[in-house]
């Protein structure tokens, strides 16, 4: 039994609504406890619709989502309880802040879930620490913070619900390099501390190479590829055909191979590339 399993998920949108969700067609995959799954695909490939299914915000037209073996729609009345187990951080989450103070805003989710006063305090403290928001900020208005800080407070608000699976929809969109690194560290740390499963929608192949255990490639609402980053990035042509590319560093090595070298196709990070090139140099020097 997988931790979270999606089986033949299909979603067709109704034409009568002004809210356009991209369609999803017959998508199946699974993710285990403690894994990071990256979902990639160009805009309109259905990835945002897909992740909104995972915590019951959208009901699938066909197929099912099994969390610990249970169909999340088995008890439809209780669908909001699944949202405490599977958290979702939307794109630009800073736009959901509304409380008077940072503390109250982070506590909003836990309060809705009916945590006790003590549990609320504890989980707010923990998640604030995890995102690097110090206690001095607790009584400030969230609207007085900088863009990057706002985003971290918003993320803390979802982490404070202590989800076992946490989904991030383009968590670093619009941030500068420092902000991006902060968010990626938060994701890594939460996973480590809670042995949680992370699902991350992203456009950055470099982030995928650094963080992900598995990758799901979406194209036109369908699953195009599924595997480890090394497997996915070893097929550049397939990625190009769905409007994506391999990490910049892999491109450099592919180019080197065109120039007559013979590097392995599964080098996806700068460190791996440095080692491979130095080894190659060493080999050539020794020969």
């Amino acid at each position: 039994m997988s931790f979270l399993e999606v089986k033949n998920l299909t979603y067709t949108y109704s034409k009568n609504t002004p809210f356009f969700n991209d369609a999803v067609e017959d998508v199946s995959f699974s993710v285990e406890k403690g894994e990071i799954l990256a979902i990639v695909g160009h805009t309109g490939s259905g990835k945002s619709t897909l992740v909104q299914h995972l915590n019951g915000l959208i009901k699938p037209t066909k197929g099912e989502i099994l969390f610990c073996g249970q169909n999340i729609w088995n008890n439809e009345k209780n669908i909001s309880s699944i949202r405490s187990k599977i958290g979702l951080v939307f794109q630009y989450p800073e736009y959901q802040l509304f409380e008077e103070t940072v503390f109250k805003d982070i506590a909003f989710g836990p309060k809705n879930l009916g945590f006790s006063e003590q549990e609320i305090n504890e989980s707010v403290l923990n998640s604030a620490k995890l995102v690097g928001i110090s206690q001095e900020y607790f009584n400030k208005s969230p609207f007085d913070l900088s863009g990057g800080e706002k985003r971290r407070v918003a993320i803390a608000g979802v982490l404070a619900m202590k989800p076992q699976v946490i989904i991030f929809d383009e968590p670093t969109a619009g941030l500068d390099p420092i902000g991006r690194n902060n968010i990626l560290n938060i994701i890594k740390n939460y996973k480590k501390e809670h042995n949680a499963t992370v699902i991350m929608v992203t456009h950055s192949m470099e982030d995928v190479a650094l963080l992900a255990d598995k990758v799901l490639v979406m194209n036109n609402g369908k699953k195009a590829m599924f595997g480890t980053p090394k497997e996915i990035f070893s097929d550049r042509n397939k990625l190009l055909s769905v409007g994506l590319d391999v990490p910049l560093i892999t491109n450099v090595l592919l180019k080197l191979n065109e120039l007559g070298f013979n590097f392995e196709s599964n080098i996806i990070t700068v460190d791996e590339a440095v080692n491979a090139i130095i080894n190659c140099k060493g080999g050539a020097d020794n020969a």
Binding site: P177, I249, I278
Partner: peptide
């Protein structure tokens, strides 16, 4: 300065440190 560098520039820089 709080900036990033492209992976390509970083690779060259790291290799240079290793003597290339």
């Amino acid at each position: 300065s709080g900036l990033d560098i492209p992976q390509t520039t970083e690779l060259i820089f790291e290799l240079a440190k290793k003597g290339l």
